[in-house]
């Protein structure tokens, strides 16, 4: 691993300044559960790491009107065990509790997961599936505009995710067919019925998390797994790798979507 400067700013403003002064070559460090493996393999060689550890106010979970606001620094373990999360969007607590393993959940954070935008990560399915809003130090970005490509988001190189606002759901569930080695999603489907309608978001299957509008329309008139049993998802553009081929993934999208709908109704 190449060496780097290490900063532990106390405020968001200081962190932004540190990122700016590194000329786009500095990186934020949250839980490190994605970034440190990337650094070990020298897939990225930033000149500076700017740790969020000492910045206060980013690890709160609270109800904010019709939204559940979760701070960027909340660990997966914290979200999984939070009573507020369990009582408002139980599916989100469950999702967080099945990310990786306990040690990853003790370090990894919500902000890091969405900013990293790993195409097989779990949180992006919930963010898109609930139609959440990503709050940064300078703006609010709708989930539909956030996951733009393979490990790609509209975040600027000195922009910091501060929280995610998840709309409360009438019904919601996440079903994941996990890689037995890493627990990342081979295919994961998040379905939700909120004030904003029905959404179906798929992670793991393609180059980025995506919605299945045909299923959304069917579920909007009849929220049951029967309503989507004949909807096939095309294997074109889906991933083929050591874990599964595109055809198999396409099949799994249907299976996981039906399981998620049943769980949401259950």
């Amino acid at each position: 691993m190449q060496n780097f400067e290490f900063h532990r700013p106390k405020t968001i403003a200081e962190a932004v300044a540190a990122l700016k002064s590194s000329d786009g070559d500095g990186k934020l460090l949250a839980g490190g559960q994605s970034l440190i493996p990337v650094l070990k393999h020298e897939l990225a060689m930033p000149s500076a790491l700017i740790s969020l550890a000492d910045i206060g106010g980013l690890d709160e979970i609270r109800l904010d009107g019709d939204n559940l606001a979760i701070g960027a620094k909340c660990t997966h373990a914290q979200v999984a065990s939070s009573d507020v999360v369990k009582n408002t969007i139980g599916a989100l607590a469950k999702l967080a509790g099945h990310i990786g393993d306990p040690q990853v959940r003790n370090r990894g954070t919500l902000g890091g997961s969405v900013a990293h935008a790993d195409p097989a990560a779990d949180y992006p399915a919930a963010v898109l599936g609930l139609g959440a809003t990503i709050k940064t130090d300078r703006r609010a970005i709708a989930a539909d505009d956030f996951f733009t490509g393979f490990f790609e988001t509209p975040l600027e190189s000195d922009e910091i995710v501060t929280a995610v606002l998840f709309p409360k759901a009438e019904k919601a569930a996440y079903a994941k067919f996990a890689s037995p080695a890493s627990k990342y999603a081979i295919v994961g489907v998040f379905v939700a019925k909120t004030g904003g309608g029905v959404r179906v978001a798929v992670t793991g299957a393609g180059p980025k998390v995506f919605r299945v509008t045909e299923m959304e329309t069917a579920l909007a008139s009849n929220f049951s797994s029967d309503a989507i049993k004949d909807i096939a998802v095309s294997a074109d553009d889906l991933n083929s790798d050591v874990e599964a081929g595109a055809e198999y993934r396409a099949h799994l999208v249907g299976v996981m979507a039906r399981r998620a709908v049943d769980a949401a109704n259950g």
């Binding site: 559960q33 440190i36 493996p37 740790s51 550890a53 373990a77 040690q103 990853v104 370090r107 080695a181």
Partner: peptide
């Protein structure tokens, strides 16, 4: 391992188990 998966490096930091191969010493300061 070098993929943060095996857990042979597990230690407690502030009482919680973590993978010490996936944390920097400066973060434990």
């Amino acid at each position: 391992c070098d993929t943060s998966q095996c857990g042979a490096c597990t230690v407690l930091v502030d009482g919680k188990s973590i993978k010490s191969c996936t944390m920097l010493a400066v973060e434990a300061d």
